[in-house]
Design a protein around this nucleic acid. Structure first.
Lengths: 202, 202, 202, 202
DNA sequence: GATGAATGAGCTTTCATTCAT
DNA sequence: TATGAATGAAAGCTCATTCAT
């Protein structure tokens, strides 16, 4: 029955939400399945019909986050009135999204280390990369529309912007910018202005 | 005796080196004090006279790494013949340093999450930030010399470059760039060219 | 309806067969109801209408095995042309049966240990002993016919032969004979010859 | 210091003894490290400096048992006054040893199944086989002395006797003999008599 | 009869750290 | 200083079985 499906999806979501909050609070490795189960109001065993292991649960949290990022970017970009503003909004809303959710950014970095040699299943990894790519398209489209870029140039500029934004967020959230006496918002504004000037049509 | 001091420093260094290699291989949390002791050729208990706990050992490894980064940058920059080249070399050698030591980059990110609620001791944290700042000064000096920047501008530009480089390295090492169809070296070359143009004296 | 009975018997048999193969592969305790259900193409819950618990399923597998042993012995003995050959064939076919099904021999030994304090239900135990006794009668009859034994002597000789054969099979399957530098087939041939000589009429 | 060695050996023995009794009571797989630790009066973690895992502990229990069997056989055989009696005593004392320690016999059978795919380490397996072989030599020597056997014949007869005794003990301890209406002691007496007659010099 | 999520206890093993020696 | 046994908690995961559907 569709009813059963819905109930199952709901219960699954409860677990994912619980996992997100526990991961955020304790970090990926320090978070325990017991703790997540407790937060979800069930027993450890009750998680396993939905997620084969901790890793799959982690992937679900990441996937959820990327979906939400995508929605955030798409909504914000919808408000732009001209190509220039669209770029500004795209960058600013990406920054703002993770700025207000530092745990989510942090969580994604676990893909880099920790996480057993195996890492995420290649299949899961591919799925997450696709989602990220889709979310970033909002930025890529804005850049291309503003500067009239072909596919190759669009890819290059998008990766530059993406790298910069990630670096900015990470340096900010790890308090490195503060230690160096700088400020993330001001930096982003300046970066955006330079970018728009550099890519300005003709 | 000075002799005793030297012996003590040597033993300490053996432990730090062992820790670095074990951290690199297993990640910070998966690395065990037992494993590090084994790699250092001693027993667990022998570590504690030198480091109060795993965290302090981690900090020592990070500190070592920053010293080594500093030397690497300073040496490379010494070869520059003109201000423009000096900037190019500074950026490239920073990138190259972590590119060939992805584990060291990864290790630094643990500062971001996990690592007990407490994180590193504020004192240790301050010391590490100072070392990072000193290393980055090589880049900052190159930028200032090339573009004739005042203190404020220098700080801003350095942070921009630092953020970009960190983002580039992380996106590269996590294979995000590959997934997005781009290439870190080419991106860095392009970034450097744009930077030099933007900051060019007149 | 008889139809329903037949369907039920069939489904039951599917489960028993699945259990046998899983028990054989993993051992009694390592085999899980989930695994057996998967092998049988059903879910865990579907097993319980047929078997109250794992133990009952185990008993069904054993019982099946004894039936099959009985058939094996009866068929083989049917080919004998004279009493002497009948004894030889009975021993050899008993040996061959378990030799080619070491898992079944192993499975029977669980009766010896593990298996919950309770062990098998006395009722089940009695039923299994009766089946074993029937199967062994093929050997007992052969011995009695060859040597003209009365009931007491028959029982004694049968138990001796049974014990020897079990010991031989177990020592062989646990590789103890190999470790001691001996060979099960040669031993059985020699044993049979001695037995026939000892029991020879007059 | 030799003192330390002695203390360590003592603590180790306490754990082995505890393990034997828990294994005997619950079976190999049902016995838990927690239970063994409790029986030994320590915590689970305290077992691991002595035994790397449950399997190694199991091997130690088996090894202990074989040593004790050897002593039992050697002591008993020492009382024999003539070759014939020596054979009788060897068989009877082997039987009596396991008859009064059915758990030890049972424990050895786990080598057959259960026990993860890996089974015992080949090295451990070899060591145990060597110990068994040494213990059985007491029987083998008695047989050879009585019947004047060469090496090949000695090996064959020893394996025959060993297989029979194992089968007899197992069939007895699993209550199969009782179910078949027979009696282990009477069977052994009869078997011994037949054996002595068959192997009698000239 | 069949499903499969849920229970709740259980497992072995590992960990950082301590401390008597 | 160095040893390494010991602590005590905790980890992820699996289990047989139940039961609402």
């Amino acid at each position: 029955m569709a009813r059963d499906q819905a109930v199952r999806a709901l219960k699954r979501q409860i677990i994912v939400d619980a996992a997100r909050s526990v991961f955020a609070e304790m970090g990926l490795e320090a978070a325990s399945m017991r703790g997540i189960a407790a937060a979800a109001g069930c027993t450890t065993g009750a998680i396993y019909p939905y997620f084969r292991n901790k890793e799959e649960l982690y992937a679900a949290v990441l996937s959820d986050g990327l979906t939400s990022l995508h929605e955030h970017l798409a909504t914000a970009s919808g408000n732009a009135t001209d190509p220039r503003e669209r770029v500004e909004i795209a960058l600013r809303s990406y920054f703002a999204y993770y700025r207000s959710r530092p745990d989510e950014l942090s969580l994604g970095l676990y893909l880099y280390h920790g996480l057993k040699p195996a890492g995420l299943t290649p299949e899961l990894d591919r799925r997450l990369n696709r989602k990220l790519s889709q979310a970033l398209d909002v930025i890529g489209d804005a850049l291309a529309a503003y500067a009239g870029l072909d596919a190759d140039a669009r890819r290059m500029e998008l990766c530059q912007v993406f790298s910069y934004l990630m670096g900015l967020l990470i340096c900010d959230c790890t308090h490195r910018l503060r230690a160096l006496g700088s400020n993330a918002e001001a930096m982003l504004d300046r970066y955006t202005a330079d970018l728009l000037r550099r890519l300005a049509p003709h």
